[in-house]
Amino acid sequence: MTCPTCSASVLPSESFCEACGQPLATPLCTACGTPTVDADGYCEVCGLRQPAERDHEELTLPGGAAGVSDRGLRRTRNEDAMALLEAGGATVAVVCDGVASSPRADEASAAAVRVAAGALAGGAAAEEAFKLAATAVADLADHPDNAPACTYVSAVVGGGRITLAWAGDSRAYWLPGWTQLTTDDALPTGEITAWLGADAGPVEPHVRTFAPSEPGLLCVCTDGLSGYLADGVPDSGDPAALARTLLAHALDAGGRDNVTIVLIPVNPLGGTDG
Results as ranks from 00 to 15, higher is better:
residue 53 E to R: 14
residue 272 T to K: 14
residue 121 A to S: 15
residue 1 M to H: 13
residue 63 G to Y: 06
residue 172 A to C: 05
residue 29 C to N: 06
residue 47 G to V: 12
residue 201 G to K: 11
residue 218 L to P: 02
residue 264 I to Q: 00
residue 169 D to L: 09
residue 163 T to N: 03
residue 88 G to H: 14
residue 178 W to D: 01
residue 36 T to V: 10
residue 138 A to W: 06
residue 166 W to Y: 09
residue 46 C to A: 12
residue 236 S to R: 15
residue 219 C to G: 06
residue 255 G to F: 02
residue 266 V to Q: 01
residue 144 P to L: 01
residue 101 S to L: 12
residue 10 V to W: 01
residue 66 A to P: 04
residue 144 P to D: 00
residue 205 P to E: 01
residue 129 A to W: 07
residue 151 T to Y: 00
residue 199 D to C: 12
residue 181 L to D: 02
residue 246 L to Y: 02
residue 179 T to S: 12
residue 66 A to R: 08
residue 233 V to P: 00
residue 264 I to L: 14
residue 209 T to C: 05
residue 236 S to W: 08
residue 16 F to M: 06
residue 88 G to C: 13
residue 83 A to F: 05
residue 52 A to H: 12
residue 187 L to M: 13
residue 29 C to E: 01
residue 117 A to F: 03
residue 30 T to D: 01
residue 224 G to R: 10
residue 61 L to P: 04
residue 177 G to A: 04
residue 36 T to W: 11
residue 93 A to E: 00
residue 220 V to F: 04
residue 143 H to E: 13
residue 249 H to L: 03
residue 157 V to F: 03
residue 240 A to N: 09
residue 193 T to R: 06
residue 67 G to S: 09
residue 156 V to K: 01
residue 46 C to N: 11
residue 273 D to I: 12
residue 63 G to S: 14
residue 21 G to H: 11
residue 248 A to V: 06
residue 53 E to L: 13
residue 170 S to G: 04
residue 102 S to K: 14
residue 100 A to R: 14
residue 136 A to P: 03
residue 95 V to F: 01
residue 243 A to G: 07
residue 151 T to N: 02
residue 8 A to G: 08
residue 187 L to N: 08
residue 19 A to L: 10
residue 228 Y to K: 12
residue 272 T to R: 15
residue 173 Y to Q: 06
residue 112 A to N: 01
residue 253 A to H: 14
residue 149 A to S: 15
residue 81 A to Y: 09
residue 254 G to H: 13
residue 158 G to I: 01
residue 203 V to D: 03
residue 71 R to D: 00
residue 44 E to W: 04
residue 252 D to R: 14
residue 197 G to N: 10
residue 76 T to M: 09
residue 153 V to Q: 01
residue 270 G to Q: 13
residue 157 V to R: 08
residue 31 A to Y: 04
residue 217 L to R: 13
residue 206 H to T: 11
residue 140 L to F: 03
residue 234 P to Y: 03
residue 212 P to Y: 11
residue 179 T to A: 13
residue 5 T to R: 15
residue 212 P to W: 05
residue 155 A to S: 07
residue 240 A to H: 15
residue 49 R to M: 10
residue 179 T to F: 07
residue 236 S to K: 11
residue 98 G to I: 07
residue 81 A to N: 14
residue 213 S to T: 13
residue 87 A to M: 06
residue 162 I to Q: 06
residue 97 D to L: 09
